[in-house]
């Protein structure tokens, strides 16, 4: 069972996430397509965090920073493009409405931020690490609130979705397909990374740091690299999320956002490759159905989270696929 069962659960999740919007396309239910798109994008944010939290054991309570930077990368670039104002006056560099360019900027900017934040935070561990990452998140949050150039507290709207070469992104299913493809590609890459020498050593750093040092490997560089990659992935998801809503605001940087990304990971299964996919899907389903019953649906979410933490540490994937089995 083991590996093969988890692979099957993963394949079913991926197929399900594609089947729902396909059905919605046929049944002409565009809102369902939007929900599926949210799942794909938020799952991507979770995949990023899971690399740091699950594989690396780095409990970051500040991943909203990277989500927000991705979002603002999109917002700022598109804002200048739609207003025909140069992004950087001195060199008359224009904004852009091209998704690939926006993604590249989002990934680069959030990777740089993660590198800087990681370089400082990774000198601590445990509760201090959690607190420092949280503090960085709050810094960015209050900075965007008090930065009037890009909407301040109100955030800013982008009137049209950005462009992707050869695709009409205004069609909901097309944008879903773009998000879904990116999610699948990142899952493939992260899956490989987890089995590669880097992933093996990173996982050893989580399980037993003393052991890792005793085979001649310093954990710091591994963790910093993992944290940087993790931030870059969450940054990409932030850019997509902003494009989905055509809106960015400081709330992308809030600690609640960090918490939600963490909830995807925990609900789905910490350290499991497809955990955030399952977690984000469950979260959106709960939000949609329970949110319809009561606006206090978070009470149910809290109870569920409590249940998972107390009784099902492997999360949804753990329930469906059993305990994690070492690869190969």
């Amino acid at each position: 069972m083991g590996v093969r069962r988890e692979t099957m659960v993963n394949a079913l999740l991926l197929a399900g996430l594609l089947a729902v919007p396909l059905w919605a396309l046929w049944a002409d239910e565009p809102f369902t397509i939007t929900l599926a798109t949210r799942v794909a994008i938020l799952a991507l944010a979770g995949v990023g965090l899971n690399l740091a939290l699950g594989t690396g054991g780095l409990v970051s309570f500040g991943h909203a920073v990277f989500f927000g930077i991705g979002g603002y990368a999109m917002g700022i670039l598109a804002f200048h493009a739609q207003n025909y104002t140069p992004l950087i006056e001195a060199f008359s560099i224009p904004g852009t409405r091209s998704m690939p360019v926006i993604w590249a900027v989002a990934v680069l900017a959030s990777a740089l931020a993660a590198l800087a934040i990681g370089a400082l935070s990774l000198r601590t561990s445990g509760v201090y690490f959690i607190m420092i990452t949280l503090a960085f998140g709050q810094m960015f949050y209050y900075f965007t609130i008090s930065w009037p150039a890009y909407g301040g507290e109100d955030g800013m709207s982008i009137y049209l979705r950005n462009n992707f070469p050869g695709v009409n992104t205004l069609v909901p299913f097309n944008f879903f397909a773009i998000s879904y493809t990116l999610l699948a590609a990142v899952l493939l890459l992260v899956g490989r990374l987890m089995r590669a020498p880097f992933g093996l050593a990173l996982s050893a750093a989580r399980q037993n740091e003393t052991r890792l040092r005793a085979v001649g490997i310093d954990p710091y560089r591994l963790r910093l690299t993992a944290f940087t990659l993790s931030g870059a992935i969450t940054g990409l998801s932030g850019a997509l999320y902003a494009d989905l809503n055509r809106f960015v605001s400081p709330s992308m940087f809030s600690w609640q956002t960090s918490g939600e990304i963490m909830i995807f990971v925990i609900l789905g299964g910490v350290g499991r490759l497809f955990g955030p996919v399952a977690g984000a899907a469950l979260f959106i389903l709960l939000e949609h159905f329970l949110g319809g019953i009561s606006e206090y649906w978070h009470i149910f979410l809290g109870a569920l989270l409590l249940g998972v933490v107390l009784f099902a540490r492997g999360g949804l994937i753990g329930l469906l696929a059993g305990r994690e089995v070492a690869h190969d």
């Binding site: 490989r192 990374l193 590669a196 880097f198 093996l200 050593a201 001649g216 690869h327």
Partner: peptide, 22 residues
């Protein structure tokens, strides 16, 4: 995997992201 981790430490090229260690 524990033994491979040792072999990896001995070889020293840990920053490899794509090919499976095993």
């Amino acid at each position: 995997q524990n033994a491979v981790l040792g072999a990896l430490g001995a070889r020293g090229k840990v920053m490899r992201f794509f090919a499976p260690a095993l």
